[in-house]
Design a protein around this nucleic acid. Sequence first.
DNA 1: CTGTTAGCGCTTTCAG
DNA 2: CTGAAAGCGCTAACAG
Lengths: 355, 355
Amino acid sequence: MQVSVNHSDGPRAASEPARRATMRDVAALAGVSIKTVSRVINGAPSVSDGLRDRVTGAIARLDFRPNLAASSLRRADGATRQIALLLEDVANPFSAALSRAVEDAARERGTLVFAGSLDEDPLRETELVRAATLHRVDGILLVPAGPDHGYLEREVRSGTPVVFADRPPRGLAADAVLATNEEGAREAVLHLADHGHTEIAFLGGERRISTSAERLAGYRAALAERGLAERPGRVADDLPDAGSAARAVAAMLDSGDPPTALFTAQNLVTIGAIRTLQERGLHGRVAVAGFDDFPMADLLLPRVTVVAQDVAGIGALAVRRLFARIAGDASPPREERVPTSLVVRGSGEIPPPPR
Amino acid sequence: MQVSVNHSDGPRAASEPARRATMRDVAALAGVSIKTVSRVINGAPSVSDGLRDRVTGAIARLDFRPNLAASSLRRADGATRQIALLLEDVANPFSAALSRAVEDAARERGTLVFAGSLDEDPLRETELVRAATLHRVDGILLVPAGPDHGYLEREVRSGTPVVFADRPPRGLAADAVLATNEEGAREAVLHLADHGHTEIAFLGGERRISTSAERLAGYRAALAERGLAERPGRVADDLPDAGSAARAVAAMLDSGDPPTALFTAQNLVTIGAIRTLQERGLHGRVAVAGFDDFPMADLLLPRVTVVAQDVAGIGALAVRRLFARIAGDASPPREERVPTSLVVRGSGEIPPPPR
DNA sequence: CTGTTAGCGCTTTCAG
DNA sequence: CTGAAAGCGCTAACAG
């Protein structure tokens, strides 16, 4: 209503880069101390209605935006309301879904998320962790690329909690949220076996990634459970991309003794395998069950049976742990497992050819 | 080598949350002034080798990490080395690819990226823009959800440049990097026509999104160019998701006069259309050309002919503009168009049935 | 309920 | 080439 202050900052041309208003400007315009402005901004109860209104009005008139960085610099808890999410590649479906789950949870807490792609490169991991610490993020959510995470100990000790998703930490005690890789793989292979297959191949992703090993273990467990022998030519692990997977499948099919069913233990491997089957017109004859769902899996013909990971669930749980740590939870690190689920669509139910 | 300072901060239990070292700690340990440390950190040339080595040693010993927020608070240019990327949904393929391109360019400039999903919600747009400004990002890259962007004027004036990607600004003069939507759509429809189709339907996404209108214009231009009449029942625009697209296609097929070819002007629309065709066993009989490529488009049978957008190109160009603005480029806003390309895969070359 | 003073960690003056 | 003092925008710790 009553404004008693004149334009305090002289002539301001429309084009000249306007300086952002600070708390001091607001205080001056409202005729209160800067501290009172701070109280209003932070919703402190102990401000009279009259002053609060004056301050609110000044804030609106000046279009004042509190500087979060300055605030956290001085604030006791030092929180910056930013977290880092470091993962494989923001462009791949798994990471993208994880990212979205994390973003949603962070938004509820007024926190912004830095996303960074590691491309399975340990060096990128340490670089991005460093960048995150320079920005003083409140916490780090990591799908690790590197083989050892001891270097994170000092970050954790100096107050930046780290939570692992999808893959466990090594050389560091930290929270981890993982999928039930072994059980999921076992379920898929049992499913193939129960549809009559005895010649089931394993095609897996990079060996150094922990999930690969767990899924291979699940494959072996299922074979054992059904009394099937594991044959050397039936296992191709350490496939880095779809192309190598396609070639590995081709080689198996060309052998004198081709498998009648494929368990593909990773996204890209599944895709590579399907491509080879399509090329040979075998996509309706060789059964396929894949680990991890992928876009369009239910539009391919036959539709692709997969063990789906609850990616959003993993993300949500991991970010929840992270915020608990940020809030001060000092309980021992824990590992949580999020269950997978078999999605039956057709490709996994193709029977073996009559002998 | 020679260390002459004793442990200056008393007994420190391994578990107690270690305070991060500051420049003052480094200065004390190195026996120099805090300003010299600052010079070393910022690579100022005017520091003698001896001092530089002492400082470097102290930094390493204390595991010192400069606080970027504190630095930018005082720094003349106020740069925070963070930008915001606000887009549709980090989990969808278009946004994810854009995100990756932006991340890569930002990384080269030592800048971190906040990604935020708007879900086509104008309110989210303003909320996230606000959050970004509270964090004092150096710039904002926006795939807008809202109908008007005049509110961004004050951000731009107070020094936060905004660059638009995929969709142009309204009510604001700002840089924009867009695809050649009309030309791309035209090319796809001409392609269908040149394969003998005269009954070509248009299925488009939400009408209020500018790309939809441009693509519809391209469809019309192509029809006109080939002397084909536009018939009312052939156009279904404003389809918000794959389900509505599927239903729209079904309705057209059920009409007495079904189209022989479909131009699907958006990702999800293409997918919905294909689903309906599959359900009716028509996926080998009705031609389809879609706007915007999507994962697995080349694994579906028939493989899907699309007009592919150069998403990475759009992202790279947009982020480049943004960094130019951040660096102080004050030239008039410009609109740039990134060309699309027709990817011929099979579904678009299906001929019309003999009459 | 309100204000004053000090200082977060750093860079900018401006002196030597 | 080096350093002392001031201050970025804000909150903590005390006053009153």
